[in-house]
Amino acid sequence: MEKRKVWFVTGASKGLGLTLVKELLAQGYNVVATSRKQADLIEAVGKHERFLPLEMDITSDDHVREVIAAAISHFGQIDVVVNNAGYSQIGTLEELTDEEAKRNFNVNVFGVLHVIRNVASHLRERQSGHIFNIASIGGLIGSFPAFGVYCATKFAVAGLTEALAVEMKPFGIHSTLVYPGYFRTDFLTQGSAQTAQNPIDAYVAAREVEKAHLHEINGNQPNDPQKAAELLIQVSQMENPPVHFLMGEDAYGMAQQKINTLVEEISKWKEYTISTGY
């Protein structure tokens, strides 16, 4: 029964999405994969009777609705949704134009909402399903110079997923918020990661962090996307899967550091915090 389930994966023409699609097909699942260009999906995966590649503009609620309807029409159902589409917008808050910031939110946040909004009624009718929202460790920790807007999009995904989990639970639908660390994909390569159109030289630390990500971390990430794909499938098979799920030893370490920092700072300012009551 598990292997006849239908997975709907966005951002599937490269990176973790592509690795997941290939592993799902290898394990016998039915897969709907979406990307900006259908040809990219076909070139990356090939043709397969259990594979439905669909072009989708994730920033268009109407187009997402049409694609989800086409997926359901083809396979008869959707069981697991993976909101994976997204990109990294690099640049300090002052540097990024209004257009650059909004574009990142349109893809990383509103794209997720479009998929959820248009697949929710189908999952509710079936009284089952699992939604994975792929955030980032940057959705838990925002202290990366030049990554403020990107982290903000992932913080938003974290917040809406926590709400989604309690909203969908009565219908038997699981929601999992995934916080990946650094995985060795093309996420930081040119064409995937976007840099500021109008950089400001004064932001020395931001330029150093940007350079490190694009030229030192890129290609040397410590985590294997194949293992991530296998792990996501394993989580989908759990009777009681987690709502918050960290992926990667680096993500675990950074999360622990954030927790310790929060505890220390909350405790330090406790007297001020509780002083506001009547």
Rank of each mutant, 00 (worst) to 15 (best):
Glu43Asp: 10
Tyr203Lys: 02
Pro242Asn: 04
Thr92Glu: 08
Gln226Trp: 11
Tyr203Cys: 03
Ala135Lys: 02
Thr153Ile: 12
Ser236Leu: 02
Glu2Lys: 11
Arg65Ile: 04
Val31Cys: 04
Ala158Pro: 00
Gln234Asn: 08
Ser128Lys: 06
Leu140Arg: 12
Cys151Ser: 10
Glu55Ile: 01
Val81Pro: 00
Glu216Arg: 05
Gly277Lys: 14
Arg117Trp: 08
Phe144Asp: 03
Ala44Val: 11
Gly148Cys: 07
Gly139Arg: 13
Val119Ile: 10
Ala12Met: 09
Gly253Trp: 15
Ile233Glu: 05
Glu162Thr: 12
Trp269Leu: 11
Met168Tyr: 06
Gln226Ser: 12
Asp61Ser: 10
Ala228Leu: 14
Gly86Trp: 05
Ile266Arg: 09
Ala229Asp: 09
Thr189Ala: 13
Glu167Ile: 01
Val149Pro: 00
Val67Met: 11
Ala251Asp: 02
Glu43Gly: 07
Pro170Glu: 05
Asn218Gln: 11
Asn106Gly: 03
Glu265Thr: 07
Val263Ser: 12
Asn118Thr: 04
Lys211Val: 07
Pro242Ser: 03
Asp224Thr: 08
Glu100Met: 08
Arg207Pro: 04
Phe183Gly: 01
Asn240Met: 15
Gly76Trp: 14
Trp7Gly: 01
Asn260Thr: 10
Phe110Gln: 08
Gly248Asp: 06
Tyr87Arg: 01
Glu162His: 11
Leu93Val: 15
Ala158Met: 15
Val64Arg: 07
Val166Ser: 06
Lys3Met: 15
Phe110Cys: 05
Asp57Met: 04
Ser60Arg: 10
Asp250Met: 12
Glu249Lys: 13
Arg124Lys: 15
Glu210Gln: 07
Tyr29Ile: 00
Phe105Glu: 02
His244Pro: 01
Glu239Ile: 14
Ala196Asn: 01
Thr276Ile: 10
Ile200Val: 04
Ile137Pro: 05
Ser128Gly: 06
Phe51Lys: 12
Arg103Ala: 14
Asp224Trp: 14
Gly219Asn: 11
Gly191Ser: 03
Glu264Trp: 04
Gln221Asp: 04
Met56Thr: 03
Leu52Asn: 02
Phe144Ala: 04
Asn240Ser: 12
Gly17Met: 13
Pro225Met: 09
Gly181Cys: 09
Val157Met: 10
Ser13Val: 02
Leu96Trp: 00
Tyr278Asp: 07
Leu96Cys: 06
Ser236Lys: 08
Gly148Lys: 06
Val9Gly: 01
Leu232Gly: 10
Gly138Val: 13
Leu96Thr: 01
Val109Phe: 06
Glu265Gln: 14
His213Phe: 15
Val243Met: 11
His48Pro: 06
Tyr179Arg: 12
Leu96Glu: 01
Phe155Ala: 03
Thr185Ala: 00
Val178Lys: 13
Lys14Ser: 13
Glu239Pro: 00
Tyr29Leu: 10
Glu264Val: 10
Val243Thr: 09
Phe132Lys: 03
Ala255Cys: 15
Gly139Thr: 04
Leu164Tyr: 11
Val67Asn: 02
Ala212Arg: 13
Ala255Gln: 15
Gly142Val: 10
Thr97Asp: 08
Phe171Thr: 00
Leu177Asp: 02
Gln38Thr: 03
Lys227Arg: 13
Lys211Met: 12
Lys3Asn: 14
Gly28Asp: 13
Ser73Gly: 05
Arg36Leu: 15
Tyr182Cys: 05
Gly191Gln: 04
Glu162Trp: 12
Asp224Ser: 07
Leu232Asn: 08
Ile90Trp: 08
Glu208Ala: 14
Leu93Ser: 10
Thr153Cys: 12
Ile72Val: 15
Gln27Tyr: 03
